[in-house]
Design a protein around this nucleic acid. Structure first.
Lengths: 362, 362
DNA sequence: CGTTTCGGCTAATTAATATTAGCATCTATC
DNA sequence: GATAGATGCTAATATTAATTAGCCGAAACG
């Protein structure tokens, strides 16, 4: 099985090759690649070694054991920070599985929990098994710093629902701005002019983007932005309830509320029920995330589906084996499509009149 | 880092050790373990080598790369047939994670989909990464045949929600009989005598067991079993609706219905609503599975939680490193605890009178 | 009864990596 | 400006596993 006999060409990249390329000894390469403690190697040499290893496509233990010839080429690692807390990760995994199915690829999933001690272990467990590609996902859309061990060897890597500052890897995230925009536009197209929104925790990227989308939709429809109609929530049903109450207490309450996630919408529903208002006749509501429960609310909630299935597929499709050092990838954005259910209707005639009046005669 | 210097004790199991134990050469061990094609080794020797390897706890590529000292001993493989179709797998994984967390173990999850070509690949991907233990889970409780590649090296293996005919591995399943029994008993304790049940697809173990529990609870309370009150469903809401309608059409309709899963209960709710009956005043209902939605039904559904979290923990706790060939393990059963919500009440006085009368004067 | 063949294995070799010991070179210190 | 440490690395060695070549005995064959 081992190709290089005595006089043959290398056929496999060995530490010797790297040493030659990096201009140092095999021992040094071993030290660097294994990060052996207690050895003094300058950062420059370390960099050169890693670069050479990457460039030559060095794979650990290529020669050892059967790993190389037992078909393990087709294992794709999938690291996610949280698996159990929300269904998105599962959906993304399913998308990745579907996309890699016909190619006969196997997915190996692990949870990092963003724990500084567990994450390296988890990724190590993945990579040391000889994966041929890595998908790195976070539950919340955010910027991440890929630890060095992720990009150690040049396995193709794709970021799912996150991105790095240097854009060194292909990355895909939901298009939250477009999502916020289409949700709001949906309400506008039903004839609403006075549309409130209850945001999530505003420091989160998703909340900011959905709000941006909201403002954009208003602007596109030439509806002036009214800060009074934006209430800062925190993704929770409780905040949804309180925020809705605040909106209802306004001198000119809205005729529609864009809740920036479904849990907020649940609180919103409660508040409207307590206030004696009917959905959608007296108040239209849209949610976001398309959680399971939104199908079972009365009336069923119009909301946006997070495109995690598509993101999983996208990730698989963009696992390019060619490693182009220094290349920069734009962040791909996939659409959050609106699923229309029964929580949106045209504003009541009188309300519309009043509001139209308010606009025409300031 | 490598312990055995020239004169030291082995500290790691090497092919030499196996060769000594099996009474052959290191080369022979290499041939056997790698299944090198084109070599002639008798079956007896192969067996001896594997046995010795198992007994000594040989781990592939122990010496090579950092695998040995980077904590890869603590990787636990988790193979499940379906990941996305239902939340149970996730819950079990979470249980396993929690239980192995403090020990610093990493979980590596893969999906087999019960596909004859994917499953070997998936498990191979897991094992070749050097896992130290394997948990094998199925979504539906059932008997499985562990393919040979699962038990190749003596990594401790536990079966979750499934079991083998030969009981060669520790296995844990939910105690469905006890669950059916306690659900029914709960209704009996509220004063119900005429209790119907809508089963799942009866060929499934779970459906049979839940029915058995139902009958046992009746027997314990000295309530005669009435086949008229058992309707065969198929786990679907549609069947729940139809079955409930059938029950309501009975000459002596029940005062309580034990739906053997939550989806059935949803159909049951619908049917009762359509029939103008109130829950729980006119009809008590209990479900099974504690799906997310049962919390949001009106009234919230009393149901049983599948103990998948506990099963995940149990699995981790029973990953005994000691391999006792030929040992037989009993199948462990974990309780499905009843979560009481608002779908059960005492039967209405008149109904109770009628029924009591029916019993006392046959 | 000698010879061939082949199954079943081992010894010896080779390839690869890990690790130890130590050699330069630089740097700060007295 | 000698010297004691670091610092940064390499040569040599050790360990392990894969592979080749070939030995030995038994069965098959003439």
């Amino acid at each position: 099985m081992r190709k290089p006999k005595t006089q043959n060409k290398p056929a496999r990249v060995t530490m010797m090759d790297i040493a030659a390329a990096a201009g140092c000894s095999q021992a040094a390469v071993s030290f660097v690649l294994n990060d052996t403690p207690g050895t003094r190697i300058s950062q420059q040499t370390r960099d050169r070694v890693w670069e050479a290893a990457r460039a030559l496509g060095y794979m650990e233990k290529t020669y050892t054991t059967k790993a190389s010839y037992s078909g393990l080429d087709n294992v794709i690692g999938f690291a996610v920070d949280q698996l159990a807390t929300s269904p998105e990760a599962i959906v993304a995994i399913e998308g990745a599985r579907q996309a890699s199915w016909n190619a006969g690829n196997v997915l190996l999933v692990t949870q990092t929990l963003s724990d500084p001690v567990m994450e390296p272990k988890a990724i190590e467990a993945l990579t040391s098994g000889g994966i041929s590609a890595l998908i790195y996902m976070t539950i919340y859309t955010r910027q991440v710093e890929l630890p060095s061990y992720v990009c150690k060897l040049n396995i193709p890597t794709v970021l799912l629902n996150c991105y790095t500052a240097d854009h060194a890897f292909p990355a895909v995230v939901p298009s939250e701005i477009a999502g916020g925009q289409s949700s709001t536009r949906h309400l506008i197209m039903h004839g609403h002019h006075r549309i409130a929104t209850i945001t999530g925790e505003i420091w989160m990227q998703a909340a900011q983007d959905r709000l941006t989308g909201y403002r954009r939709a208003l602007a596109t429809a030439d509806i002036p932005f009214d800060p009074e109609l934006v209430i800062e929530g925190d993704w929770s049903a409780g905040a949804g309830y309180a925020s809705t109450m605040k909106l209802l207490a306004l001198k000119e309450p809205p005729t529609a509320i864009f809740c920036q996630n479904d849990r907020t919408a649940i609180g919103c529903y409660e508040a409207l029920k307590d206030a004696g208002l009917r959905i959608p006749q007296d108040m239209s509501v849209v949610g976001y995330d398309d959680e399971e429960i939104s199908r079972h609310l009365v009336p069923p909630l119009t909301t946006s589906v997070l495109p995690h299935l598509a993101m999983g597929q996208w990730a698989i499709e963009h696992l390019n084996p060619e490693s182009t050092p220094g290349k920069r990838y734009p962040i791909a954005k996939l659409e959050c499509s609106l699923v229309k259910r029964h929580s949106v209707a045209a504003p009541r005639a009188e309300a519309r009149q009043i509001l139209d009046g308010a606009y025409t005669s300031p």
